[in-house]
Design a binder for these strands. Structure first.
Lengths: 310, 310
DNA sequence: GACGCTTACGTTCGTCGTAACTATT
DNA sequence: AATAGTTACGACGAACGTAAGCGTC
């Protein structure tokens, strides 16, 4: 067995069970890949891929396990290479962040700006997704760091660090009657059509819980995947918006008025997550600290439970 | 980078930073090992080992991380090979269990007997140690399964499953006054010299807590690493023994009398642990179920959170 | 001077690419 | 007939072992 063979089987799976595509993606010849896979299967004594004659049509039961382990191996190998570059070249590399719209749009920019100034040679990638996708991306090694409010903590393979707490607010066009409800109550809110986040997002379950606890049924007329869509429809007069406090910017949102709703719903916590056992480049720590100043390198290392031997 | 290079650096570390010994242990030539290590260091751009001239005298900071990751890789590769043998040859292989004296001596034998009858071709190893050592062995991959009452749950890298609960008992030579204390109380017990487990073991902390809660200071005259030593010294009249209920066997321990102490101390739970992300051979599941019948394959898989795709 | 690591060199084996072949759709 | 995978073969390169060299202790 060698690393190349593991790369080959992973590529074949990734390319939809095509040896030709896998070979192309790895810039090598198709017969080479074919042969190495056969050699590996022979050595292990099991077929990894199901075949119909000569075509690959699926993954066998042992193949699924082997592929999962092979990915682990390749990730760790990647980690070892990272260690090399970290110690020879601290300031170059890449950082791939998976996050939600709200974070990407309203809370990350400040940290990103400082980061790119300080590490201009780091290649930064930001992937947008819902919390479940984000957790999966970090767990699979497709993203280095995940930032989201939900779902992260449920994953065993992730180390999750709390960043900050936030509350919700209600927005409406100027003159809307909800703005005169003082103090604003859930009961009052339930009388208006509501525009808020999709269920997969940002503590949406907390919103439902708060209404349910009072025996109220909110009239949710539109659920969106991001704060900007919510604001757009509120401006159109579709209803009152219920969104993250940090997503309201008085300077920009001149067509809207905001009422704090911190007293109506439980606060949500935004977390940052990295894969357990991952080697963290120095600038990863730097980014985390820029985003959440209390998460110093020491604090992160402690949470990783495997104190960095640096 | 290739797997051989990773095997080499791990062997060098394991053999106490000796390239010659590492080469010997891997049945290869010493110059080959030397060269591959240099090639790896060159490729990564960092020194893994500290050198004084030509001798290895230590591990560098990046080297420590690289070695840790390399061990991960080799474990996963081992796992892949296991998958092969599991599917071609379900009944042969090896199983390495790390456990404490009390488990090895009193609770495991029944399961082991059934297991060896059912899987005569499985090579069984039992390593004895204290709970901390057991957790470390499983986490490092030196043992496949760990069984102990403490310490396991604190390790992130382990999946821990509860097996059974047990209580303590007091033993003393026939005619000893403690046997007439009815009902037996902590206060009464505190009047006698006590022989019990070392602090690293078997809920020893629970014993201290129970006494402390009543403001009592037990007179512990001897702490032992195993139940047999405790019984031996109790037979010699050194004091009363406080040990696990299952460690008292009326048929064997004819020179001792036992009083149940379940009402005096909180019950302890014995756990079984495997490394997270490990591929479990079929007979591992069988062993676990023989030891703790409620831990069926389905129950174990569920706890592993990564449902076996078998 | 003995031990331990490195360099040098030649052989062997494994890997990869091209080309021809075969099977599936 | 076209597409996808396998077999065959030859060239290159990597890895290993032996032998000699060099630096430490």
């Amino acid at each position: 067995m060698n690393l190349q063979q593991l790369r080959y089987i992973c590529a074949v799976e990734r390319q939809g069970l095509s040896i030709s595509l896998a070979a192309a993606s790895l810039h090598t010849s198709q017969p080479g890949v074919s042969k190495q896979i056969h050699l590996l299967e022979e050595e292990l004594g099991v077929r990894i891929f199901e075949r119909s004659g000569k075509r690959l049509i699926g993954v066998t039961a042992p193949g699924r396990i082997i592929l999962a382990q092979a990915k682990e191996v390749l990730r760790d190998v990647q980690n070892i290479k990272q260690v090399g570059t970290e110690f020879t070249n601290e300031i170059t590399g890449s950082l791939s962040i998976a996050t939600t719209h709200t974070q990407a749009r309203y809370t990350l920019p400040k940290a990103i700006k400082k980061f790119t100034q300080r590490y201009p040679q780091v290649n930064l990638h930001i992937h947008q997704g819902n919390p479940t996708q984000i957790a999966a991306m970090v767990e699979q090694g497709e993203a280095d760091i995940g930032i989201a409010t939900e779902a992260l903590a449920r994953h065993q393979g992730l180390v999750v660090l709390p960043c900050y707490q936030w509350n919700r607010c209600v927005v409406a066009p100027p003159g809307h009657p909800v703005l005169k409800e003082k103090p604003l109550t859930l009961k009052a809110l339930a009388r208006y059509p509501i525009v808020t986040y999709d269920f997969a997002f940002a503590g949406r379950s907390l919103i439902n819980q708060a209404f349910e606890a009072k025996g109220l049924k909110p009239n949710i007329v539109l659920t969106a995947l991001d704060s900007d869509v919510i604001k757009t429809y509120v401006e159109l007069g579709l209803g009152v918006g219920l969104l993250a406090r940090m997503a309201f910017e008085p300077a920009r949102d001149k067509n809207l008025r905001m009422v704090d709703a911190a007293h109506l719903f439980a606060a949500s916590t935004t977390y940052i997550a990295v894969r357990r056992g991952m080697f963290l480049r120095g600038y990863w720590y730097a980014f985390i600290e820029l985003f959440a100043p209390h998460l110093t390198r020491a604090a992160v290392d402690k949470a990783l439970q495997t104190p960095s031997p640096l």
